Structure formats: C-alpha cells, structure tokens
Computed example of a mutant assay.
Amino acid sequence: MRRSYSNTIQTFNKIQTQVFQALYSSDENVFVGAPTGSSKTICAEFALLKLWNKRDNSRADCVEPYQEIVDQRVAEWRRKFGNVQGGKEIVSLTGETSADLRLLEKGDVIVCTPSQWDVLSRRWRQRKNVQTVALLIADEIQLIGGEVGPTYKVIISRTRYVPAQTEIKTRVVACGASLANARDLGEWIGAPLHAIFNFLPR
C-alpha cells in the first residue's frame, strides 16, 4: 500500500483515517458520505487494495455516473495501479456488448456508467464474469436521486441479488456526498451500522 501513495500523500486525512479499518481490514459492505473534495476516491481504493491482497485474480467494477468521470478514473488508476502486482489492467466499457464482454474478461478493474453495467449484468446467468465480480464500487451515490438514479438502483439491487443465487459474494462500497438519509441508504446496500460513515457537509 505504501508504494501506491508514497509519492503523493504523506498522511491520510481524517475521513480516510476513520474509514480505513472498515474498508481495508474487512470484507463488509461500506457506505462513505463525505463533502466534495475530501478525497473519497482514495477510500474506495482501500477496498481495491484489500481485494488485491487476496491474490486470487478477483475483478472489481467501478460505476461512475457519467462518461467523463469514467475517463478520468481510468487515466488516474492506470497511472496509480499500473505497476501493482505486475500491473493491473484498468479498462472502461464502450457500450458495445461483444467488445465489453472481452474487456470484462481481461480487466482487473472495469470502470463504466450505470447504463453500461446494466446492459452487461442484465444477463448475469449466462455471464460467469459478471457473477464473479468481487467488488462493486458505486461512486457519487448521492445521484441515485437524480437522472441516473433508476439505473443505479437496478444495478445495485442486482449486485445484491446475484450472490444470493450463486453464493459468490460481491462486496458493495458506495461513496458519495453527505446525506440526510445515509443510514437508510447504507442499510439498503447491506452495510452494517458500524460501516455506515456520514460526515458533516462542512
């Protein structure tokens, strides 16, 4: 972990420090609500690094609300994780199903919009690589109340349903702005009370 951050961060901020144990030392579902600019992306990265500690070639899916954020995330994580454990393959979906199935097979982290993941995961029974996604990072989860909300709700509900049918666990880590109903949202994604973090907007 030190190698991933030693060039950019001397110490983690207060929010990162408080959520670290829940994200890096457990496999529980977690909700992190914190103000814009508090580096919540690094909190999500703790869950990625936890996943990679298992060294079992598990893949992760990171859902971003808009394509421009997908592109930023892919560029950032390719720089940051390109040399982790021999190099992690960070891919973004295209919206073209046959190409995306190939990307899903080769990617360690699949970054996509809610609608792109909805299309791929809809036929999860026929797609083993969808069933075996071990971590879903749902970013900007506060937008569940906006235009991407219905699709976001569908893919998170599906992500929680599939393990109940396959007995292959998928961890859900949701990050977003501070919310008035954080406990409700955290419980909906399956996070225990001690893994629901909602910091003051200021």
Score class of each variant (00 low, 15 high):
Met1Cys: 02
Arg2Ser: 13
Arg2Trp: 06
Arg2Val: 06
Arg3Ile: 08
Arg3Thr: 12
Ser4Tyr: 09
Ser4Gly: 00
Ser4Phe: 08
Tyr5Leu: 04
Tyr5Asp: 10
Ser6Thr: 09
Ser6Trp: 03
Asn7Ser: 14
Asn7Trp: 00
Ile9Lys: 03
Ile9Arg: 08
Gln10Trp: 07
Gln10Lys: 10
Gln10Cys: 01
Gln10Ile: 11
Thr11Trp: 00
Thr11Leu: 04
Thr11Ile: 05
Thr11Cys: 01
Phe12Ala: 09
Phe12Lys: 10
Phe12Asp: 09
Phe12Thr: 05
Asn13Ile: 01
Asn13His: 04
Asn13Leu: 00
Asn13Lys: 07
Thr17Tyr: 02
Thr17Ser: 13
Gln18Cys: 05
Val19Ser: 05
Val19Ile: 09
Phe20Asp: 02
Phe20Ile: 00
Phe20Ser: 04
Phe20His: 14
Gln21Tyr: 12
Gln21Trp: 12
Ala22Phe: 01
Leu23Ser: 10
Leu23Glu: 06
Leu23Trp: 12
Leu23Pro: 11
Tyr24Ser: 14
Ser25Asp: 14
Ser25Trp: 08
Ser25Glu: 15
Ser26Arg: 15
Ser26Leu: 08
Ser26Gln: 14
Ser26Met: 07
Asp27Met: 02
Glu28Lys: 14
Glu28Met: 02
Asn29His: 15
Asn29Gln: 05
Asn29Trp: 08
Asn29Val: 10
Val30Glu: 13
Val30His: 04
Val30Arg: 03
Phe31Ser: 05
Phe31Val: 05
Val32Ala: 03
Val32Pro: 03
Val32Thr: 05
Gly33Trp: 00
Gly33Arg: 00
Gly33Glu: 04
Gly33Tyr: 03
Gly33Gln: 06
Ala34Val: 03
Pro35Lys: 07
Pro35Ile: 06
Thr36Gly: 03
Thr36Asn: 05
Thr36Pro: 05
Thr36Leu: 00
Thr36Asp: 06
Gly37Tyr: 02
Ser38Asn: 07
Ser38Ala: 15
Ser38Val: 07
Ser39Lys: 04
Ser39Arg: 06
Lys40Arg: 13
Lys40Met: 11
Thr41Cys: 11
Thr41His: 12
Ile42Val: 15
Ile42Cys: 09
Ile42Glu: 15
Cys43Trp: 12
Cys43Phe: 13
Cys43Met: 12
Cys43His: 13
Cys43Ser: 15
Cys43Ile: 09
Cys43Asn: 11
Ala44Phe: 07
Ala44Lys: 09
